[in-house]
Nucleic acid binder design. Structure first.
Lengths: 137, 137
DNA sequence: TTGCGTGCAAAGGTTTTGCATGGCA
DNA sequence: TGCCATGCAAAACCTTTGCACGCAA
């Protein structure tokens, strides 16, 4: 993972700083832009998109596309949690990202690989749905 | 399921006809519009969206929102035939969207629901990876 | 006749792109 | 100095909406 690729600009630092601070939730370009402006370090929208693209590319950030309507969401991924080994569940209601390490699920990769010839990249794959807590309410 | 709700207009018939003819694959508004125009029965984009909304509403059509970029995909749902839930595989290399209807995979939803209390929305969930063809090359 | 359906054009929102300028290494 | 990064504005897209007219029932 080439986390340090690219120049180290003020905009990039502010962006990553914000993403890390909000790594426990998903955020979007609008939110990022508003925050950075309010903080006195405005960053152009185009730049935000371009930086996010790179971060998604090198695995630092994960991108979620729910509805084309709402726009994409982004979330910083911690190095420590080895997210390549397990799957993720993203709650469409509360936005929580659940790390799911389950042997039963690991069979899925194997099955799809053997029977369908498709090699799943679990670091990019996210199951969307409604989590336990949100289902109750 | 109130399949016969609404007026029976020429536009609606042409649209449903096209959807049924392509029920084995995903289509989108652009494709629908182009086809109907080429066929000599052009239908306004707004009308297509409005009709699709209704069809999705009453369960005749399923809507998929993968990438905000590509726009939404739609698929006619047959009672009994292809109305079972299925998953999608998206090749990160060639971009192909593979439509995967497999009983083994259907267990996944059930497992995650029962063991982890998470209700998967298969219309939003996509497995990312490398497809058979791209793996060879 | 009634009121939903349609088409057009305009508006809305997100994301991308062109181009000149700025700034890291 | 050589490139990459940035910002602005414009463009590209997909989708929705307003409004007058058309048409099914």
């Amino acid at each position: 993972m080439k986390r340090d690729s690219g120049y180290n600009t003020r905009q990039r630092e502010k962006l990553i700083s914000f993403l890390i601070k909000n790594k426990n939730k998903h955020t979007n370009v609008q939110e990022i832009s508003a925050y950075l402006s309010a903080e006195g370090s405005p960053v152009g929208t185009a730049t935000i998109y371009r930086q996010l693209d790179k971060l998604v590319e090198n695995g630092t950030v994960r991108k979620y596309s729910f509805d084309g309507k709402t726009g994409a969401c982004y979330q910083y991924i911690d190095d420590g949690e080895n997210c390549r080994e397990h799957f993720h569940l993203k709650c469409l209601s509360c936005g929580r990202l659940i790390h799911l390490d389950c042997s039963h699920l690991r069979e899925i990769s194997q099955h799809i690989s053997e029977e369908h010839g498709f090699e799943i990249d679990s670091s990019q794959t996210v199951f969307y749905g409604i989590c336990k807590d949100c289902k109750i309410n």
